Amino acid sequence: MSEQEKESLNNFEGHILDWLKSNNKTKEYEITIKKRVIPALLSDMLHCIYETLKAMELGKVTIAYMLLRKPIQENLYLFEEMILREDSFIKIFEENPLSLRPKNAGDIEGHKNRMKIILETLKLDSILDSSYLATLRYDKKSEDSFDGVCNQAMHLFTEHQMIKTENLNINFIFADKESKKTLYDFMYSRLPYLMYYIYLVFEQIVASISATTQDYLADIHHRIFAMFLLSYAHIDDYYKTQQFYDLCILFEKYLIKSFKCELSLNTLESIAFTGKAL
């Protein structure tokens, strides 16, 4: 910034965004907005997910699934839009933010195609399954989806054919201990896969503003991979999926190559919590 620009900014009485825009500093203008939006959006997302997990821990299954819908369908969608519409996102955000809602992606195929583009951009389309991610987040017709369960948790009565409330019933109200255990197992066998995708999307966005060091990325990857393997060990066979298993095999190979050791339970716990093998 030149001395003349510094003086102009110091004497400017309006909002800094107005100054940036009036001085044709488009890049700085967009980065300033993103630096304001991204932390707030991430905070909102993580608070919802944290409270989801705390509610599950306390056995408050209905509350947990009510809270999960927004972060995985709306917050994550907006982060995806920042990648897919990198050059036009700020303009759209200024002029027509309603076009940034998930319903504008269309049907499940539309959501799948969006995520496929993102995974291809990240060069991870052979690692994560865009079709499965779309199903988990948005497909009411699938039993292997958060969408139907989250809608039932949110509403006392639902009419969609696949989640229609039975006669003489109210969604979740009469759930017994066995039903809650089923919902618990479903949550913890599906959410880690989705959380890894969330991490990848967020890392891509922030890297475009301020790149993360390779040492930090390696440490984070080691911890995530180890935690992923630990979580898989606690999943009941009935709830295991091919997608989760394939990711575990990949993570296991990566950790063995990185640490050059066998991955015992104690070793995985050490990597997960300290970033180092025993």
Score class of each variant (00 low, 15 high):
P71V: 08
I118P: 06
K35V: 02
R36S: 15
N23G: 00
S88V: 14
K141E: 14
S22F: 06
S131C: 01
A134F: 01
I38H: 04
K27G: 00
E28G: 00
K91C: 00
K25E: 10
D87T: 15
T135A: 02
L98I: 12
L98Q: 11
E95I: 09
P39I: 13
L67I: 08
N11D: 12
E30R: 09
N24M: 07
L128R: 06
S8K: 13
R114A: 08
K70W: 05
G14W: 04
S130N: 08
I127P: 00
I63F: 05
L20Q: 11
I16K: 08
A105W: 02
V61L: 03
K21A: 07
G106I: 09
L20D: 07
D18I: 02
I117L: 08
I38F: 07
A40S: 13
A64F: 05
I92T: 15
L76Q: 11
N23D: 05
R85F: 10
K116Y: 05
E51D: 11
Y77V: 01
D87V: 00
M115I: 13
K116Q: 13
L122G: 02
Q73N: 09
R36Q: 10
K70L: 03
R114D: 13
E94D: 15
S126E: 10
P39Y: 05
S131R: 09
Y132E: 09
R36Y: 07
N75Y: 09
Y29S: 11
M82W: 04
N113S: 12
K112P: 06
E30A: 00
E7F: 00
A40G: 03
S130M: 10
A134L: 02
S131I: 01
I31P: 01
M115C: 01
E95Y: 00
M56G: 00
